[in-house]
């Protein structure tokens, strides 16, 4: 499902990263562990098609990402890849439900209110449907960010440090939620983090 081959990226001559090959079969999750500054976020952006590698390739669902045109890649990402960032961000002018509807719209999918309620329900924040995201608590915001990533039933969920700012209890909760959501939508989950606490949660670990 996810295949990474000889991936190499350079910001400049000093800052360049060579990443190990990855082969992730369908139905399996992956935890990528690594210290700060060794290119974790870079790897995630390469996997999501937000950055262009200098060499090597990333293949998702049999499609080589960086061979597509920019517009096609945007569409592909919208439809098949869900992203969760370290700090949750939203479109501020819109309510939570509208944010989710926008994400559906941008991916070119049918805007489905039932799906929105379903996702928020499973994350326990359905009552915040018409709330502005920035009015939610920290923990609720993190869940709302997960909702944005999974609402389109992506095939691949990429999470960048989703737990680093959370305490132990919430860290486990978020990790559990991510895994739960991934299995519910039949998606593969790749978490990239320096958070050693997550190690116990994943069988499949790659150390950068």
């Amino acid at each position: 499902m996810v295949k990474v081959r000889a991936l190499f990226f350079a910001y400049n001559k000093q800052t360049c990263f060579r990443f190990p090959d990855i082969d992730l079969e369908a139905g399996r999750n992956l935890l990528v562990l690594g210290e700060s500054g060794i290119g974790k976020t870079t790897l995630l952006h390469l996997l999501a098609g937000l950055l262009w590698p200098k060499s090597g390739s990333v293949e998702v669902m049999g499609t080589v990402l960086h061979e597509m045109s920019l517009a096609k890649l945007d569409r592909f990402r919208g439809r098949h890849i869900g992203l969760v960032f370290q700090r949750p961000h939203f479109v501020l002018a819109l309510s939570l439900a509208e944010n989710l509807a926008l994400v559906q719209y941008l991916a070119g999918k049918q805007q489905d209110k039932n799906r929105i309620s379903e996702v928020l329900d499973s994350l326990g924040i359905r009552h915040k449907l018409h709330e502005k995201p920035y009015r939610l608590s920290q923990g609720e915001q993190q869940r709302a960010a997960i909702a944005l990533a999974v609402v389109n039933n992506p095939r691949l969920i990429l999470a960048d440090e989703p737990t680093s700012s959370l305490d132990d209890k919430n860290c486990m909760k978020v990790a559990a939620l991510l895994k739960e959501q991934a299995s519910a939508t039949g998606a593969q989950l790749i978490i990239i983090t320096h958070d050693q606490r997550l190690k116990a949660q994943f069988q499949n670990t790659l150390i950068l």
Partner: peptide, 18 residues
Amino acid sequence: DRQYEMALMRTYGATRWQ
């Protein structure tokens, strides 16, 4: 103020022209 929003929307599938 909305730079991040724009980038976010791109990651969710918005094209540049949109």
